[in-house]
């Protein structure tokens, strides 16, 4: 059971909460102790919009333990509109599949369970193709 770890990461995972550097105003995700842009200490929370584009992707057929039930699934590098890149699964893909450059948006989904069916459910960000519709 890794309950404390999942609990500690909930803000980042549920809502894509990263940081904005108080020194250089660079947006940071995932959060870091030191700003990757200017080297200052970064501690101010910043909630990302969740909009981005696919930079690269891979379709996973051989999953590590804990993810086997979901194969095949797609993992992507998503370039967020605020700048940072994030590694995340893509979900709700249709027949069109994935293309590099495709616009995607963040959704909060079930990632896996911690251990067996008695374990904690782990939720976190994934990205899906932007849905056509009013916004």
């Amino acid at each position: 059971m890794e309950v404390p770890r999942h609990w500690r990461l909930k803000q980042q995972r549920y809502a894509l909460v990263g940081e904005v550097c108080p020194h250089c105003e660079g947006k940071i995700f995932p959060p870091r102790d030191v700003c990757p842009h200017c080297g200052g200490e970064a501690k101010t929370p910043y909630t990302f919009s969740g909009k981005g584009t696919v930079y690269s992707y891979t379709i996973m057929h051989d999953a590590p333990a804990g993810y086997d039930e979901n194969v095949p699934y797609t993992v992507a590098l998503v370039k967020l509109e605020e700048g940072p890149m994030v590694t995340a699964q893509l979900t709700d893909l249709d027949e069109q599949g994935v293309q590099i450059g495709m616009p995607v948006e963040m959704v909060t989904r079930r990632i896996r369970q911690d251990g067996d069916e008695r374990g904690l459910l782990v939720y976190g960000y994934k990205f899906r193709p932007m849905i056509a519709g009013a916004r």
Partner: peptide, 13 residues
Amino acid sequence: TAQGLTLSGLAGL
């Protein structure tokens, strides 16, 4: 790793 990414997945990206 938390996203279900393996070493081969990284290579795929």
